[in-house]
Design a protein around this nucleic acid. Structure first.
Lengths: 356, 356
DNA sequence: CTGTTAGCGCATTCAC
DNA sequence: GTGAATGCGCTAACAG
């Protein structure tokens, strides 16, 4: 079969323990032997057996990153940022320190698959797990999730939430480290921007119901509306849908059906906003002259939309990188365990005062 | 510490071997004992120790998926498709069959990180590895990569190439299973479309040099040009850049500088095309009246670009899913080990006959 | 500084 | 159908 530690040891004329020591570099070894071992490793093309190593050391170098939709850059950017914090960046050639293997798992937004992956990661005895994006708000699932996270924690796996609201301290110990976004504030600023422009009839295209991100953004929107004394119509002018283009397209048409005099539509995120724009164009409406549109997240393509999207920029990369560092214990947790990033309003060409 | 097989065995009043058998479900066990064991597992919240299991069985349930850029939907879609083929889709609650853990690793387009991940995956004794996207064409790297893949293969890891050209049989055994796209043909059809519209001065914005995808698309483009007797200017009207929006923006300006009379620009992919559109707009040029633009891949946002992008649709999901099945041995390899998908020309609004 | 000795937790022969 | 051994390859105490 495969080359083992013992083979390397034999070839180098040392004991297995010594080989292990030079490979892990966590113990003093004479320079000469060290070189001899390294050479043997090269010659034999030896590659450590991860499972065996993990078993013996009771720790693995796997770090799991859960995302709702791997085809969505929102998650891709965060996941990439997390990964960028792993490893020593240098070559791995041989004893280049404890390289972590950051792996991203795509839940597709399904609570079951989320729990599923968590179990698989626990089975692998992952060193850390980073959960990104909004959580599903369902009594049963919230509890099941909390249970899984508690077990993970008990098993010594560092759990970090990224772009997801804090969990609230359970009975057993404190909540996981959290890096989150001020979705409420961002949505509120976006709505205030529209109101200040003079809009009075605003439609809101919310994300899927029972999702924290959806709820928070909606709450921020409503708060601004209420402050302006415009909350009356809010329910009627809110439509829920998925975080995708099709929902934006259909949702925009539905909103227009409900209220033809709409002068602005706020989309749950940039992708949805793209769908909204498409629908409006197909209806012969000009943006922003006839109707203003806003997104959320400021993904790279937002600036390329036609017209360029007014949106809220979330520091996705920054948050992901921070989460990665927290996961590895390379950085101390923020006070209270929760770091909140606010989003910046990016005013571009898709919003303007209403025609009238 | 953690709950082990032995704990479960004790609680169920059976031997560890029996517990192992019911959990793996690959051996006859009496219904009654089976239930007793399952209950004990539940009560103790037992989760298999992956490393130990992998060590004993000499196989792991990890499947690695390497991507060049996780924030790019091109890769996200393929990676998601691969993952969708893992696992029995059902609950994992207990002995729900051999769930594979598909994990995606982001190389960021760096050859070193690619090799690095391959080593880490080999260390984990991954069951399979799927390499997606174009490969870097550099003598040294190609060889290093081939070596890694050969080792992986020797270690029993199934290697599958997805959206990447076949490797060519090495000395040691056949090339890996491959699912690839006909980039040459797609680019050729795109160029022919433009030529048939009457364009005679075409600029080409190629991807990074020394990448298979870049080269193949460029070759297809050149082939069409040559067939039309227009190859003379080709070199001058080709600019290389990254697969991102900024390159499209800068590249378009550079092309215009080289040849102000350009009537069409072919971008390396949709993302680049977006940048091209932005640059043209900023220069006051109308698309397609003043200048036609094409993309490649037909990512979801292509249809939302303004104007909707003429491009080549690649069956990314289909290819990824196929690769996933091949990786798990759920499907026989295609004859010759290589399956090629062709791309469909999607003619939309960003191309039209030249003004003159 | 280096070798020796024990397991880590599980899958898998064998017996029964 | 079930239990009792054995070893997977490695790390972590211990000695020396």
């Amino acid at each position: 079969m495969s080359v083992t530690l013992a083979d390397v040891a034999a070839r180098a004329g040392v004991s297995a323990a010594t080989v292990s020591r030079v490979l892990n570099g966590n113990y003093p070894v004479a320079g000469a032997t060290r070189l001899r071992v390294l050479r043997a490793v090269e010659e034999l093309e030896y590659v450590v057996n991860g499972p065996a190593s993990a078993l013996a050391a009771a720790t693995s170098d796997l770090v799991g990153v859960l995302v709702n939709d791997i085809a969505d850059p929102f998650f891709g950017i965060m996941a990439g940022a997390v990964q960028s914090e792993m490893g020593s960046e240098g070559g791995v050639t041989s004893g280049a320190g404890p390289q972590k293997l950051a792996v991203v798992c795509n839940t597709g937004g399904s609570p079951d698959r989320e729990l599923n992956y968590l179990t698989l990661l626990q089975r692998q005895r992952a060193a850390a797990v980073v959960l990104t994006g909004g959580a599903v708000e369902d009594g049963g699932h919230t509890e099941a999730l909390a249970t899984r996270l508690r077990r993970l924690d008990a098993a010594g796996t560092q759990v970090v939430l990224c772009g997801r609201p804090p969990l609230g301290a359970g009975e057993a110990g404190p909540h996981p480290l959290t890096v989150t976004f001020d979705n409420r504030g961002g949505a509120r600023r976006l709505t205030e921007h529209l109101l200040s422009l003079g809009h009075r009839s605003l439609g809101y295209l919310a994300g899927p119901a029972a999702r924290t991100t959806t709820r928070h953004r909606l709450e921020g929107h409503r708060a601004a509306l209420e402050a302006a004394g415009l909350a009356g119509d809010a329910d009627r002018l809110t439509v829920h849908g998925a975080y995708d283009r099709a929902s934006g397209y259909d949702g925009a048409l539905e909103l227009l059906r409900r209220e033809p005099a709409l002068t602005a539509i706020l989309a749950a995120n940039d992708t949805v906003a793209l769908g909204v724009c498409a629908a409006l164009r197909d209806r012969g409406l000009r943006i922003p002259q006839d109707i203003s549109v806003t997104g959320f997240d400021d993904l790279p393509f937002a600036v390329d939309a036609m017209p360029a999207l007014t949106t809220v920029r979330l520091p996705l990369h920054q948050a992901g990188a921070r989460a990665g560092r927290l996961a590895l214990g390379r950085e101390d947790g923020p006070p209270g365990g929760v770091a909140t990033y606010r989003g910046d309003l990016m005013v571009r060409d898709s919003t303007s005062p209403p025609a009238r």
